[in-house]
């Protein structure tokens, strides 16, 4: 019984981890950069929805859509104005994105102040199914996250943009040679990543707190997931996200609650030692 409850909670959490990590894995695969500012779009998504819901009184659907669209547009701008010039120099990218994330955090403090903010839940209460508790808010967020993930997967499989994206991710030079505008695909992918990070924030901010430094922890988790899943592998990322959530919840109940984060990194290190390319990473092995 306890086990079932834990697994269900883990799965609900895993869906949201997958959503957060998916954007990072796409950006990583397509742009071949280590983007340390990925968490910024998560923070922005949360603040935008706070702004639209609390300050302007919009309903949460409208607020959510506006927030993720804004994040998408900011992603486009950042790619064009900031990353494009330095994209081939990995160290510069890391330093610049790191600095950018800090600068943005300061800007958020300037605009919205540093106090903690909360958002009202849009689904209140708990379902009790034979003793298993399911919080409605987490269920709704999970369901929306799964829909978004499925849409992204379909989009990658079915659309021309999706195919081009996968080709750039597999082999950038090859993509040039078949006439794909690689830079355009990279820009759009970066914006899609921003969009996904912001949507995770929109879904999670009714559960968590909103504050300027909120983006760092998801960034670290997303990196852990992406490494575990094998850089740039979408399937690996999704599986690793659920693995992370389940490891967290099970280890904290059965071993020790302060170990939830440690245990994931232990698993991560073990996997990397055994399979340096992660669970599903084979792209660069060719």
């Amino acid at each position: 019984m306890a086990f079932i409850q834990l697994v269900i909670s883990g799965v609900l959490q895993g869906g949201l981890y997958a959503l957060i990590a998916l954007g990072l894995t796409l950006t990583l695969g397509v742009m071949r950069i280590t983007d340390l500012s990925y968490g910024v779009y998560y923070t922005l998504g949360a603040y935008f929805s706070f702004f639209f819901i609390i300050k302007l009184g919009f309903n949460f659907v409208l607020a959510g859509i506006l927030s993720v669209v804004l994040a998408f547009l900011i992603g486009l701008l950042v790619e064009r104005l900031l990353l494009r010039r330095i994209i081939s120099d990995e160290l510069s990218v890391m330093i610049l994105t790191f600095a950018f994330a800090y600068a943005l955090e300061e800007i958020i403090v300037f605009v919205w102040g540093s106090p903690f903010r909360t958002l009202p839940p849009y689904a209140i209460g708990t379902l009790n199914i034979g003793g298993i508790l399911l919080e409605k808010q987490r269920l709704v967020s999970f369901a929306v996250a799964v829909v978004l993930i499925v849409l992204v997967l379909l989009f990658l499989k079915k659309t021309r943009f999706g195919k081009a994206l996968r080709m750039v991710s597999q082999q950038q030079h090859g993509a040039y040679l078949v006439g794909i505008d690689v830079q355009l695909i990279q820009r759009l992918t970066f914006a899609v990543g921003s969009f996904l990070a912001a949507s995770a924030a929109v879904l999670l901010s009714p559960i968590y707190l909103v504050y300027p430094a909120m983006g760092w922890s998801p960034l670290l988790k997303a990196f852990g997931i992406v490494i575990l899943g094998g850089m740039g592998s979408v399937k690996g990322t999704i599986i690793a996200a659920f693995a992370l959530a389940l490891i967290e919840v099970l280890s904290s109940y059965y071993i020790n609650q302060s170990l939830s984060q440690v245990s994931f990194f232990v698993v991560l290190i073990l996997v990397i030692l055994i399979r340096p390319s992660g669970l599903f990473g084979n792209r660069e092995g060719v």
């Binding site: 090859g174 040039y176 040679l177």
Partner: peptide
């Protein structure tokens, strides 16, 4: 990409397939 569309193709010394 624009050059490819105009009809200028190339191959690489080190092959670049989509694995």
């Amino acid at each position: 990409s624009g050059r490819v569309h105009l009809g200028l193709a190339r191959t690489f010394q080190i092959v670049q397939p989509f694995p």
